[in-house]
Amino acid sequence: MRPLPVGERGLLIELDTAQEVEALHAELLRRAADGTLPPVREIVPAARTVLLDGLADPRGLTAELATWHIPELTTADRPTVEIPVRYDGPDLADVAALWGITPEEVIRLHSGTAFHVAFCGFAPGFGYLTGLPEALHVPRRDTPRTKVPVGSVALAGPYTGVYPRSSPGGWQLIGTTDTVLWDPQREPAALLAPGTRVRFLPQDLRDSGPGSPAGTPATSRSKERPR
């Protein structure tokens, strides 16, 4: 860990891998919950960093971090959300060509992958999901779209993501979902949080009416109607 001061009250901790970020973030949340972490206003993970803001004594925490043992995360440490997907994206065939397989095999490989949320950003509710092996990483589109539909399931580099709202974007679109990623009336508003495991469930393209299921926590199997 490489702690760097950010202003008078912040600390940016640089790490070497996304896995180390996830483990440190989980440990910080655990210590915050049990009262062994100094008061902090925000804990924000990113691809290779964790930002702590609102610390009274950043230097004191820097010294304390050197003594911490950060346990590796296990599958049991992560909640799971299942997201039904219609694999009908306009870039599905292009991704299949990049992978050197058929679109049907893309669906099988993508839905068979256990993803997890590395960090969130770009837009409220957008999670950067990792899990695909390096051989299946794909480039962004040469020309971004000016409007990507809400619910688009997309790939770019090592990440999979679901657009929580319509916006410009250059990711490869392979499917769509009715799952609500961001709902200010829900608690929590974001369906996905750093560390959450995600499974994509292939959905029959004929089964896309208003009664289709939305994001489902696998532990409870609760249903949430799309909006």
Rank of each mutant, 00 (worst) to 15 (best):
P188A: 15
T216G: 00
T179S: 10
K223D: 00
E20C: 12
L4N: 04
R48E: 07
P217W: 04
E27P: 14
D178I: 01
W171Y: 11
A26R: 15
L181E: 03
G169I: 07
R206H: 12
A97I: 06
P158K: 12
S167N: 06
L28V: 05
G161D: 00
T177Y: 01
L51I: 01
P38A: 04
P79Y: 09
R221Q: 04
D207K: 11
P139F: 14
R186S: 07
T62V: 11
D16P: 00
P84Q: 14
D91E: 03
V50G: 07
L29I: 11
P188N: 14
P124A: 04
A18I: 00
I83A: 01
A190F: 07
L15Y: 08
G60W: 09
T146L: 05
D183V: 10
R2T: 13
V50K: 07
Y163D: 05
P124Q: 05
L4A: 06
P139W: 15
F119I: 04
A189V: 14
E187F: 08
R186W: 02
V81H: 01
P210N: 05
T179D: 03
P39L: 00
R108H: 09
L192A: 01
L12H: 01
E22M: 05
G170W: 05
L51P: 03
A26G: 11
A190K: 10
Q185P: 06
T176R: 14
G161S: 00
I13C: 06
P139V: 15
D16M: 01
T216M: 05
R186F: 03
F126L: 11
D183C: 09
T80W: 04
T80K: 01
I107V: 15
Q203M: 14
G121N: 04
G169S: 11
P3I: 14
T216P: 01
L192F: 06
R145P: 09
L61K: 08
S208W: 07
A189I: 13
R9W: 07
E22A: 14
Y128F: 15
I107S: 07
V40I: 12
E27K: 13
F200M: 09
R140H: 01
Y128V: 13
A118H: 10
G170R: 07
A56S: 08
L55N: 10
R31K: 14
R145A: 06
I70E: 09
R41F: 10
P144F: 12
G54K: 12
E22D: 10
R41E: 15
A154L: 01
T74Q: 06
P188Q: 13
E64F: 01
Y128A: 11
H110E: 10
I70G: 06
T74F: 03
G211Y: 15
L191M: 14
D53G: 08
G7F: 08
F119S: 01
D16R: 10
G125Y: 05
L181Q: 07
L29R: 15
W68Q: 02
G121R: 05
